[in-house]
């Protein structure tokens, strides 16, 4: 099943099982069913609990927070993650702060879904990975869809936290199949984290850590590193990005490389490294390698876009260089 269909099914099941859940966003109603069709069928089935809204990201997030404050739950879709900038105040100054600024825990069950990422030629304002702008906001948790995590379980978990969550979904991932990996690899879930290993290989030369949207590019790099460079890599993919969860199997890692599709500077990759350094200090043989998109806007033309965003060959080159 494709990731977008899996998400759609998860939303159907979720709204069926919990009548307090509302879904709001631009063009989410049928027959359009959302810009990426993730909300298809929901308005036909759940009526006024699903609302196509005006183009008002800030207020959509605020209305979602209001519904949550009044005792319901809300899922808000931001059509392109880039536009979540328009909801920054509602998310960081209201929804996230309300959970603690009134001196006692105030539940705000709100999930803001943000379709992220490039490699589709949409250009500078429709291609970004804005996760990094929301790292370190008290009361706010960040999650991302991966091909290995059950979306329904993630939604249930996010609502269970009681505080607002951003849920990132890479647009290219929508068209990929759930749970499908090359025969070279095996996948297991260790708590929150998907662990992808080369079947039957020895101790990895490098452990890669990445987020859902980069899984396929990273696996392509791992395949080339194995077959052409004779380097064994393991991959860790947490669904929860922030706070950074415990990453398994790193205590004796030969080398760690964090791959992050956001542009350089103040990144999730740097946050992961910050968390790992004290834990692995004294055992690391070299600094953790950070791979990010270039420090620039994301161009529309595919040949230019490709140069800016993280690609498999860039990941491979970074690992080879670190291990050389």
């Amino acid at each position: 099943m494709r990731v977008s269909e899996h998400l759609n099914r998860a939303l159907h099941d979720l709204m069926e099982s919990d009548p307090s859940i509302h879904l709001l966003g631009e063009d989410v109603s049928d027959p359009y069913g959302g810009a990426f069709k993730v909300t298809r069928g929901l308005s036909s089935r759940f009526g006024s609990r699903v609302r196509s809204t005006p183009l008002s990201e800030g207020a959509i997030a605020g209305v979602g927070a209001g519904l949550a404050l009044a005792g319901d739950k809300a899922i808000v879709e931001i059509m392109f993650a880039d536009f979540v900038a328009l909801a920054f105040d509602q998310i960081t100054n209201f929804a996230a702060k309300s959970t603690s600024m009134y001196g006692r825990p105030v539940p705000v069950p709100l999930v803001v879904r943000c379709p992220t990422g490039g490699n589709r030629g949409y250009g500078p304002t429709h291609s970004q990975n804005p996760q990094k702008h929301f790292i370190g906001v008290p009361g706010l948790s960040l999650f991302e869809m991966t091909p290995f995590h059950d979306a329904g379980e993630l939604f249930t978990r996010m609502f269970g936290l009681g505080g607002p969550c951003l849920f990132f979904e890479d647009k290219v991932l929508y068209t990929r199949q759930m749970h499908q990996v090359d025969d070279l690899f095996t996948v297991e879930l260790v708590d929150d984290v998907a662990r992808v290993r080369v079947d039957g290989a020895g101790w990895p030369d490098c452990t890669l850590v990445t987020h859902g949207g980069l899984v396929h590019r990273t696996l392509d790099a791992m395949r080339a590193l194995l077959l052409e460079d004779d380097l064994v890599c393991e991959l860790l993919v947490p669904a929860q990005l922030y706070p950074v969860p415990h990453l398994p199997g790193l205590d004796d890692a030969s080398h760690v490389c964090v791959v992050d599709d956001a542009t350089e500077g103040g990144t999730w990759a740097a946050e992961v490294a910050t968390v790992l350094y004290p834990r692995l200090w004294g055992r690391l043989r070299r600094p953790i390698t950070l791979v990010n998109s270039a420090d620039g806007v994301i161009p529309a033309a595919p040949h230019l876009e490709r140069e800016v965003l993280v690609q498999a060959d860039g990941i491979r080159a970074a690992v080879r260089e670190a291990l050389s």
Binding site: S56, G58, A59, G64, G66, L69, A70, G71, D72, Q90
Partner: peptide
């Protein structure tokens, strides 16, 4: 916007 969400409820 928050008040609008509460009013919706």
């Amino acid at each position: 916007p928050v008040a609008t969400g509460v009013a919706l409820k």
